[in-house]
Design a protein around this nucleic acid. Structure first.
Lengths: 266, 266
DNA sequence: TAATTTAGTTAGGCGCACCTAATTATCCAA
DNA sequence: TTGGATAATTAGGTGCGCCTAACTAAATTA
């Protein structure tokens, strides 16, 4: 949470990241895109793509040219210096990968993936990015029991989008028929709806109903959340649980979709 | 990439997100934390946790109290209003999940996970967060062939960290012995090191050497990148490939670690 | 080639999230 | 109970990234 402006940089690139603001990074990417697409980058087009006014672009280009990222003099074509080209390319390739990951592996909608990839690209640590790459490779390329893992995951997504077409041999995860699935070990898994007043628990999984899942995200009850049952629901009254000092109301349908771990069976 | 300040909000919460700046969101989370930990939130402690000066906190609290997120009057205890509590809790629970995901599923180092989770929490779209939850559930909870998927993935991470302890029955993914692994279909998969000058290709996977992978991230050659071979390496000279209008140099060791897809075998 | 349109720039401002320095309120201990 | 330490606030200032309005240069076209 704390952000110190200075820090230890593991490589030159991290320094670049620190030296260029998010906005400046966006300008560089846009300039690179334009040069690749249309051979030249012009103020008006940059302004349009970034959704800002032309004077903002002029100002930004002046600053970037001072730092030797772009070659700029008034009313001339804007070009990238080698330094700028390198930075822009690095950013673009991260962005492209992340968008790919979000769209191909997670099935995020295109416009949202665009927006999120752009943010991730600015903020994700290199080591995290590396793990995303490994994960992506694992999901898409791991040839396992004839089926790539990604297909399994896609089935899960499909099921979890309210498309309950799960065939009987699909034993995997949180798909309706056998949810919740894991019992035993040290803790016992059950559904939140089965708890009694006063019991403490921890959310393990959210069930397959997409709408309910999103509402739980809103309410702030996610996998990993620890809570305490304040009121059990019934006859039109909601369940009330406490996490983090906050009370959350859940209707029965939602409570039935939350797999929880509890310490002791009573 | 473009960010319009206004937009269509799918729920009230998205509005909250828009109305509170990133910094303000951080303040709310910190205040909630402090109240839960120490019963009271005080200017000095908030300043300390956020890494800012006390006047900054005062100013922020004044603004937040105008918007009815905190109850604040000069020199009195800072409390959250119900509105603020709700917002803070939502943020905190997202953050907690994301950190969990990064640490438990991806094996990111704690401090880095902290930093990245905090950023993700601010920027990820709700639908993306939902997919991260599904992915987390898939990885950690999907009981598949006796082993949870996460363990498979962890083996991959281990192997991909230079810890080549891969046993023979591990057919999974990018682990040394059988990398690259996928041939056939419409494109042919091979290693970048085997390409000839002028060939075009697309990066499919990066190999198991962690150091090389990080250097490729730096250089901007990631899964999905399309490129064109400019120079083939040999006798001390590097491979040169072109992506995105930029030239990238690779030594032979790196070129051998990049699985690529090409259109036609010659 | 002069008139008009369009592109780009300068000038001047604004809000945000910070800062330091100076001031004031509060608490505690002698 | 009072004086000093500590906490909190006000006052005033900075940089960044954006804006509008006004101006200038370049391109088009009648």
């Amino acid at each position: 949470m704390r952000l110190t402006k200075l820090g230890v940089f593991s490589s030159e690139d991290d320094m670049v990241k620190q030296l260029l603001s998010e906005s400046q990074q966006d300008y560089l990417k846009i300039v690179l895109d334009l040069i690749n697409e249309k051979k030249v980058a012009r103020t008006k087009e940059i302004a349009h793509r970034k959704g800002v006014s032309m004077p903002s672009v002029t100002e930004a280009m002046q600053k970037l040219s001072q730092e030797d990222y772009v070659q700029y003099s008034a009313r001339e074509f804007i070009e990238l210096t080698p330094k700028g080209e390198e930075a822009a390319h690095r950013l673009t390739s991260k962005y492209a990968f992340l968008k790919h990951f979000l769209v191909d592996a997670l099935g995020i909608k295109d416009e949202i993936a665009d927006k999120d990839a752009c943010k991730l690209e600015h903020y994700l640590d290199k080591s995290t990015l590396d793990r995303f790459i490994l994960l992506y490779q694992f999901l898409t390329e791991c040839p396992k029991s004839d089926k790539r893992t990604i297909n399994l995951f896609k089935e899960c997504i499909k099921a979890a989008e309210g498309d309950f077409l799960c065939d009987s041999d699909c034993k995997s995860c949180f798909i309706s028929s056998n949810f919740p699935h894991r019992y035993g070990e040290k803790t016992v898994h059950t559904l939140l709806s089965k708890l009694k007043r006063g019991q403490k628990g921890r959310v393990i999984m959210l069930g397959p109903d997409s709408e309910i899942r999103l509402s739980l995200i809103d309410k702030g009850l996610l996998p990993g959340s620890e809570f305490h049952v304040e009121e059990i629901g019934g006859a039109g009254r909601p369940f009330v649980v406490q996490t983090d000092g906050c009370l959350i109301e859940l209707d029965k349908a939602a409570a039935k979709m939350i797999e929880v771990a509890i310490e002791q069976p009573e």
